[in-house]
């Protein structure tokens, strides 16, 4: 199954954690945590942007649906059909996420030893070229 987070994980997050001498198993946990953080932020941006009338009708619709899967589908569908919600998610990915990634990489850049920086350069070269 296609994973939209694949590039972010393989080309950015894993090399960063690996270069900081974080064990692979721990790096795996951190990477999955980051996917959860990004999803949570994107979902919350969408939910917060919902206009009151749409929110009310969505709540009623979700209440009436019998299964969790149908509820989730209705939720996802509403995000893609309500333009402000879609725009809020797009804005998050376009403007806020790059800033967050920059802050994370600054944690590395500001503290890493010269050896760790060399290791990162090598890993980035391997993964991205």
């Amino acid at each position: 199954m296609f994973d939209p987070f694949s590039d972010l994980k393989q080309k950015f997050l894993f090399p960063l954690f690996q270069a900081a001498d974080i064990f692979p198993q721990d790096a795996e946990i951190l990477v999955e945590t980051w996917v959860k953080i990004i999803l949570a932020e994107a979902i919350m941006k969408a939910v917060e942007s919902f206009p009151q009338t749409e929110a009310k009708s969505l709540i009623e619709k979700i209440k009436s649906l019998p299964s969790q899967e149908e509820k989730i589908n209705a939720f996802n569908k509403s995000i893609s059909s309500i333009s402000v919600a879609k725009e809020a998610v797009e804005k998050y990915f376009k403007d806020e996420l790059p800033k967050t990634l920059k802050l994370l990489s600054n944690c590395f850049v500001d503290n890493a030893t010269p050896e760790q920086k060399t290791k990162l350069k090598e890993l980035l070269l391997q993964k991205n070229h």
Binding site: P4, F5, I79, F93, K94, L97, L101, L124
Partner: peptide
């Protein structure tokens, strides 16, 4: 993961890719 990002259409997938590339460029 895929149903949320996927349901928003390809533009959002591309934006996620864009964020990843931009973060990477700055890191490099």
């Amino acid at each position: 993961k895929t149903s949320f990002v996927g349901s928003l259409g390809t533009a959002t997938g591309s934006l996620l890719d864009f964020a990843s590339k931009r973060g990477l460029k700055e890191l490099e």
